[in-house]
């Protein structure tokens, strides 16, 4: 084939040029089409379902004038779930990044037992979210849980506290555990960024008399910014759509006060059989994430250009 191509090129140089320029694209075209189909078809199907009447068994009927969207937006639980989703996402992602940067900085220093420390930080990653959720659910059980037992042993508690019984304790706890499970991935990415930094720049800054904080603020932070951007966008998407922790620990209880959009979506689709509203909600969530990601990517790129 290589020989044939060479002969062909030799004979018609002008055609060969075009052929050579487009060849890579032609070669990856099937994969691109396939990827578009894999990603695009479910979105198309979901969008299609969201504007039709659907029964609980997924059989679509007539176009229904966006009635699914109307019912979704006028549903008494929608706004509450949306606000909680944003609170949940902002706090989990914010907390994760705020904690991960110092952890990554420490793990980037050379000290005795660093490898062990890195492994310990990464280990929770190997445990599935569902397992983490079950373990915490057990630990936080008011009557039989380890947390209350420990507190009682230290004399810090007279009567057992049901941690997951009200949203005032349950939701902050969920956020804290959300942060805990997001740290390994975030630290890994930031650590990768830190290890790519050139030591001589920091040495030069040190000689010029820059303090530790100044070196962090004006050198480290701008240099690892691309990594922070990636971490923010990916975590935002993961956490926004994060289902297992909340589902396992509270199922949105009590009285929907720990429900976020994705747990409510699951109830709508698989418990209530409201596939119409559920597909409309899926599309709304998809658009929210898409919009936020595009805005953030645009901002990050503009920043990069202006600093460059």
């Amino acid at each position: 084939m290589g020989v044939g191509g060479a002969v062909h090129r030799a004979k018609t140089p002008s055609n060969g040029k075009i052929g050579r320029a487009s060849a890579p694209y032609l070669l990856i075209l099937p994969s691109i089409l396939f990827a578009f189909w894999i990603i695009g078809y479910p979105i198309y199907d979901m969008a299609n379902m969201s504007v039709h009447a659907v029964n609980r068994f997924g059989k679509t009927a007539a176009f229904n004038d966006f009635a699914n969207y109307q019912r979704l937006f006028s549903h008494q639980l929608f706004i509450g779930c949306l606000i909680r989703t944003l609170v949940w996402t902002v706090f989990v992602v914010g907390g994760t990044v705020l904690l991960s940067v110092p952890i990554a900085l420490i793990l980037n220093e050379k000290f005795f037992g660093r490898t062990l420390a890195r492994i310990i930080i990464m280990l929770p990653w190997a445990v599935s979210l569902t397992m983490t959720g079950i373990v915490w659910r057990w630990s936080l059980n008011g009557q039989f849980g380890m947390v209350n037992a420990t507190l009682a042993n230290f004399g810090l508690q007279d009567t057992p506290v049901e941690w997951l019984a009200t949203s005032t304790t349950a939701f902050p706890i969920l956020i804290a555990i959300g942060i805990l499970v997001s740290i390994p991935f975030t630290v890994t990415v930031i650590l990768g960024g830190l290890s790519s930094l050139q030591a001589d720049v920091f040495e030069a800054a040190k000689i010029d008399g820059a303090s530790g904080w100044q070196r962090f603020r004006y050198l480290t932070l701008p240099l690892i910014r691309p990594f922070l951007n990636i971490v923010l966008v990916l975590n935002f998407i993961y956490v926004f759509n994060s289902f297992p922790l909340i589902w396992v620990m509270t199922q949105g209880d009590p009285a929907n006060s720990t429900d976020i959009l994705v747990t409510w979506l699951y109830k709508l689709a698989f418990r209530y059989g409201e596939l119409g509203i559920a597909s409309a909600l899926s599309i709304v969530m998809f658009l929210i994430l898409l919009a936020l990601t595009i805005v953030y990517a645009a901002l990050a790129m503009r920043n990069e250009r202006s600093t460059a």
């Binding site: 059980n141 008011g142 009557q143 009567t159 506290v161 049901e162 997951l164 019984a165 009200t166 209880d253």
Partner: peptide, 8 residues
């Protein structure tokens, strides 16, 4: 009853 029934 047991305290905080909504946790059980």
């Amino acid at each position: 009853t047991e305290p905080d029934p909504s946790g059980l």
